[in-house]
Amino acid sequence: MRTFLLKRSLQLIPTLFVVAVIVFFITRMLPGNPAAVMLGPQASAEDIAAYAERLGLNDPIYQQFFDYLINLVKFDFGNSLSYNQPIVNLIMERFPNTVILAVSALLIAIIVGVPAGILAAKKQNTIIDYLVTTLSLVGVSMPIFWLGVMLVLAFSVNLGWLPSTGMGSLDNGLWAFIRHLILPSLALATIPTAQFARVIRSSMLETLSNDYIKAARSKGLKETFVIYKHALKNALTPLLTVIGLQFSNLLGGAVLTETIFSWPGMGLLIVNAIDKRDFVVVQGSVIFIAIIYVVINLIVDVLYKVVNPKVNLDGGSGGAN
């Protein structure tokens, strides 16, 4: 287990390096003098020259890249002009909010999607199955920014039950906090819920056709036991993969959801920074999200191993069964 962890962690290094390269060159692709772009049209020529010097834009490109890498390793993402503070501070302030949103959405997705998928598989070819299948297909096709707007229209504009923007402070009590969380997390949860239901349904159906399920029944085990012990644990492996994949979608979906609901997370930070042309913030936040995503995938890989003892120690994401 320890060697497995070490090996997988070492594999992250090239990936993160590539991430850094991609972001570095995308931001260098900016048309015109980056310093001029960042300072905006009102800046004077001297200001721009000084700023360019400070950013090291006059150094040779490899020198710039090298400095940039050193800073990254030191977790120094630079300073934001528009917010006038280190980007690390901005991230540390905003990221927890995104985590709250993403985790609530993930929980909703697991609590609703997984049982729905199990139920559909158990009642294959019945009306319940068709209902789950149809709803989940609509779910995965949902433009969530539209769903977000519709939720606002229904629950904030028309019914007036829930707030449409912002995040509630815990100082105002738990309910105020949750009230603000409901709509954005529902919107964000839609696609993963539908996806989980689909994946669990098909993997349960596949698992239920296995010999060991027949064998378990032949031993006289109760049907609930057969389904929830023998089938479910095997069906969970694909779910874990999808949870890992969906995390990427959650972080991406958060950008849209946060914009609609003015939820002060990383997504809103990035979108606002793009508006303000504050590219240092965009660059820092995007790299940070990529790091988080890669780390989550590592965790998923490890969980994989815990759930499925057959995955070999050094093979990484080797197939199940």
Binding site: T15, V18, I22, V255, I289
Partner: peptide, 11 residues
């Protein structure tokens, strides 16, 4: 490819 996949698609 792994590096590119580390970004959420829409991001």
């Amino acid at each position: 490819i792994d590096g590119m996949m580390a970004f959420p698609f829409i991001l």
